[in-house]
Design a protein around this nucleic acid. Structure first.
Lengths: 351, 351
DNA sequence: ATTTAGCACTCGAGAATGAAGAGTGCTAAC
DNA sequence: GTTAGCACTCTTCATTCTCGAGTGCTAAAT
């Protein structure tokens, strides 16, 4: 059943008022706010119907109305007007995209901070879908006769290093041989392929080399695993406390703990394919999020990876504004790191 | 003036009770708890005197007594009994010290997490006094004809990398020359000396090399600056919410925000030289911490650096237990990373 | 000179009460 | 279909009251 134009207008007015005030909205407020030329009594009649449709709720008889989860859902799907970013907002996001870019990882972390600061909600960010991440190259650097640095670079040009110390000593030549071996045997391999290949090689290797290879490979495995595990970054968790719905510590604590302990995307209902996903209240599967809404934007990084950035807040969120900010950021990211030539060219401007 | 033995016993009983219960302690409770063979009336008389001495306080007439800041101070200085760690606690800390050790940085971060989890208080950790940190070596690795990786290692064996992209192309030979130049000219330099030396070199360099050197040097500067800036890590901030004194959001919020935004040790009264420092309530200079206590332990890292780890909580904290945990950790760190041969040998066990 | 029992007193926490006000639902008239 | 009017409901806030814990003081006991 399609809602009448007036009902829609009323629903929208209720939601937009409630987003601002965080307090139940009464019929009188609607009359003033939405420019409908009817009396409050008429609004009341309409509101009763909206309530029976499950779009509005009454906290108790004789309080104003509050949007229900499906009310928000309808608003998000149909009623929401696109929000235009202010110049300032766009600039902040641009800064985050440009500044401090050493690795993609950092852009994401930085972006989380900026967006969280802008919105006053906690943000999370992660990469996903990079099951096909592989090793592009190894470099081994001799530091002392019994210590060397491994530099591992992935096909997505993320670089990780580790200092490895040995009980035995090591010559430059030995290290070079090892280096060549690693680069010929292990480059291009994904996490799945890494260990079998290691086993194959190990069978042939002499005792000493064996140990060395093992050390490097296990570090490599660790790196790939870390990157594949979609490490989740969060920012601005304490912002929750400034929201009226979390003035009560009992409400805020479980959610804040949940967010602090986020580390794996398995804990988040990350969307596959959709560019923008909004989960309202009980639509969330995760217990801790059932009283909150989650808005997240997905963007491409190269051909096989995706990034996700999202915010968590009370169901009473300014969906329009948040969606605009997130998608602006996501578009920027897609432009910079998007499909095609992978990786992008993070201009190494000196900061 | 020296306190009578009995007064000391009473003071300690009040404090230890209050640490546990978070509620004002009455004379009757003391009679039961401390085994003094006197009546509650006597205790009351004594408590009046302790109050005039400023060691106890009364929230209001006819409530129990609460320790004052100087009461805690006296307790910490004289009355506190050394706390022995449980085997389990010692093990957790040992794990943190052993596990996941790639760089010292990570040990600290990990330690913060563990201790915060153990104590249910927020922790912070940072390094300090490393003004003499210098560059030990550079390595440049050609990735493509217009991109290379800089690997910078400090004298404390912290490694940082950056991928640098160029508009111009670059040959392996060119890179090697640059590499040699960097290593001969810039190794051993501290932050102060870096830029002057760069200026000196730059004057002589040809146009193209000039730009390259500049890119690497500015990255190096960034690294040194980051490390010298004593970046502060925090963990477990949300733990505050489980403490009764922070059940009220108004109390918790400013402190949590302060802790989240910690990034520079200038904001913390880091002790120089002292191994263990306890700041009780108003002893803190920082406004946000005036209602809290800070306990921190310092340990040596090599010859010129120190690490600090601390916890923040209500003045009602189990100082004995916390101090024990922190100093146990600090001792472990000193043993691993302490003075003398720098850096230590983080055994690169495969995890 | 200390210690103790006894008792009146103080003060906060929490329950009970009541008035004010916001907002509704219903009815009857437009 | 819309509106004015009005009784009704329910929360909020302030006020009041009671209860009990814990004190401080005094006078007696050691």
């Amino acid at each position: 059943m399609e809602l009448s134009e007036r009902k829609k207008k009323i629903l929208r007015a209720v939601i937009e008022n409630y987003i601002q005030s965080a307090e139940p909205v009464g019929s009188k407020t609607i009359v003033e706010h939405a420019n409908l030329d009817v009396s409050s009594a008429t609004i009341r009649n309409e509101m009763v119907e909206l309530e029976t449709l499950g779009l509005l709720e009454q906290p108790h008889t004789s309080a104003g109305r509050v949007p229900s989860a499906s009310g928000y859902r309808l608003y998000v799907n149909e009623l929401m007007q696109e929000h235009r970013l202010s110049v300032q907002e766009a600039q902040s996001i641009n800064e985050a995209l440009r500044l401090k870019i050493r690795e993609m990882d950092q852009v994401m972390t930085e972006a989380g901070r900026v967006i969280s600061q802008m919105t006053k909600y906690p943000t999370f960010s992660l990469t996903t879908g990079n099951a096909r991440m592989s090793i592009a190259r190894f470099d081994l650097l001799l530091v002392e006769e019994n210590a060397f640095i491994v530099v591992v670079m992935t096909n997505t040009q993320i670089v990780r290093t580790k200092l490895i110390r040995l009980s035995a000593t090591l010559s430059e030549t030995q290290l070079q041989i090892l280096n060549t071996l690693l680069n010929t045997s292990f480059t291009g391999l994904t996490l799945d392929a890494l260990i079998p290949e290691y086993r194959r090689i190990a069978a042939h290797a002499a005792g000493e080399a064996h140990e060395l290879i093992q050390l490097v490979v296990s570090f490599t495995e660790e790196v790939l695993r870390e990157l594949e595990n979609h490490v989740v970054h969060t920012a601005g968790i304490t912002n929750l406390l400034s929201q009226p719905e979390f003035q009560n510590v009992d409400q805020a604590e479980p959610l804040m703990n949940f967010l602090s302990d986020l580390w794996d995307s398995d804990q988040l209902p990350v969307s596959q394919g959709e560019q923008m996903k909004i989960l309202i209240g009980p639509e969330n599967v995760i217990e801790e999020l059932k009283n909150t809404s989650v808005i997240m934007a997905t963007y491409d990084i190269g051909d096989h990876m995706q990034g996700v950035i999202g915010v968590v807040g009370p169901t009473r969120m300014d969906y329009a504004k948040l969606a605009a900010r997130l998608s602006y950021f996501a578009e920027g990211m897609s432009r910079m790191f998007g499909k095609g030539e992978l990786p992008p060219a993070p201009k190494s401007d000196q900061s």
